[in-house]
Amino acid sequence: MNDLRDLYQEVIFDHNRNPRNCYCMKGANRTAEGFNPLCGDRLTLYLKVEDGKIAEASFQGSGCAISTASASLMTEALKGKSLEEAERLFQAFHGRITRDTGGAAPVDLGKLEVLSGVSEFPTRVKCATLAWHTLNAALEDKGEPVTSE
């Protein structure tokens, strides 16, 4: 059961029970939809981008503990980041979870480190990365819903 604790850390439960930035944002200028039909996980990401920086980030949706906590932690981490920094964070996070850093040295993910246990559970990687793929879509301004399945 110990490895379950690596996946389900207290911080994750906390963010699952009380997700941060979980609201529909009025005045968002970037939004994107994420949907994993096999799991039924679904979320909408809202960003308010001002002067090339993410002034505000929020999400709404429903999903498992991992996907909800990941979205919650992500929106916290995004605030104040430039679009380039957000893009780099996406790459770093994705590389860590999928264990594919393309040879680059692992980056310290700060508070997001609590999600690194997901890499031990290959079937759950898509849960942790859904919000991030949705972020990527919002940054690229893709009009269509994205999936991590």
Binding site: M1, D3, L38, D41, G63, A65
Partner: peptide, 26 residues
Amino acid sequence: RIHPHDIGTILDRQGLAVRVGHHCAM
């Protein structure tokens, strides 16, 4: 208040194979 995917993972670690998802019946 517990999503089926979390149920599936925790049961799996106890040797229990169940299906979670929409069962191809959305």
